[in-house]
Simulated scan of single mutants.
Amino acid sequence: MTDSIWLHASGLPAEAAGLMSTRAGGVSLGPWASLNLRPPGLRGDNLDVPESIWRNQQRFAAALGGAKPVYLDQVHGTRVVHLRAGETPVDAQGRSTEFWQADASITTERGLACTVLVADCLPVLFSAPQGRAVGAAHAGWRGLAGGVLQATLAALCEAAGCKPSEVTTWLGACIGPQRFEVGDEVRIAFGAEPGDPCFRSVATPEGLPPKWWADLPGLARRRLRAAGVQQIGGGQWCTASDAVRFYSYRRDTGVTGRHAAAIWRR
């Protein structure tokens, strides 16, 4: 399900809700136009106007049914943090002042939204049965190959007391298989053999190293299914192909905003 501003996570239990922002509906200008959500306190993001980011974050938070988005300092790793009320430092205006260095989070509490930031990497949202626990993971190719989805799933199942086969997942927008060109090191990292449908060969001049079109959502679905997940939705949007709706780090050569994907217990 989509609208002009949000991608709504479909298929989740009624007790959970999730969405992903597009680049629409904010106040940032220039290459960050318009709903750039990356907190100004994170590394390397000192170009967009902090006040614009804060206003954008307020608009995003207003769409979360009263849940507070908890942003992470993402490092393309596999660490999962368990969010609990009172453990997310904010200033007097409600702005986050510290960030856990992690690429995924889960929670069993209402009022908190597990949130990841992306601009080509794949956001994956998780819900246990009846929304007893929810989680969000940031899956670039390094984190995906390293096991961030499996780590998030394991933490969620432990917290909710459920099996992977009972978990519902939803994939947000990321760079698509027609635009994600990678080197052979990425194919090797996934243990993919020649002919693997998630890696299509790119025509390159003779003598140059091989290149591949990688299917990030396809690789995520494969890993989730191998871990026992049966309910997997979403994953049909390409950030790099739609400059009107989405930021893309690769398309915009690194000078771009960030979307957020969040999930919370109703």
Rank of each mutant, 00 (worst) to 15 (best):
T2V: 13
S4K: 04
A14P: 00
E15R: 08
E15A: 14
A17G: 07
S21D: 13
G26V: 08
A33R: 07
A33D: 15
L35Y: 08
R38V: 04
P40Y: 13
P40Q: 10
R43D: 15
L47D: 15
D48Q: 10
R55I: 14
A63R: 06
P69Q: 12
V70F: 02
Y71A: 11
H76V: 10
G77R: 02
V80K: 00
L83W: 03
G86L: 08
E87I: 03
E87Q: 12
T88A: 08
F99H: 11
F99S: 09
D103C: 05
A104N: 05
T108Y: 06
R110A: 14
G111K: 06
G111H: 07
P123N: 10
P123I: 04
S127C: 06
V134N: 01
A139C: 02
W141R: 07
A145G: 11
L149C: 03
A151K: 10
T152V: 03
L153S: 01
A154H: 07
C157S: 04
V167I: 03
W170P: 00
W170H: 13
L171E: 01
C174S: 15
Q178N: 12
G183S: 08
V186E: 11
A203T: 14
P205L: 15
E206P: 00
P210V: 14
P210G: 12
W213S: 05
Q230V: 11
Q230N: 08
Q236Y: 10
R251L: 10
D252R: 00
T253A: 09
V255W: 10
V255P: 00
R258V: 02
H259F: 04
A262H: 03
I263N: 02
R266T: 11
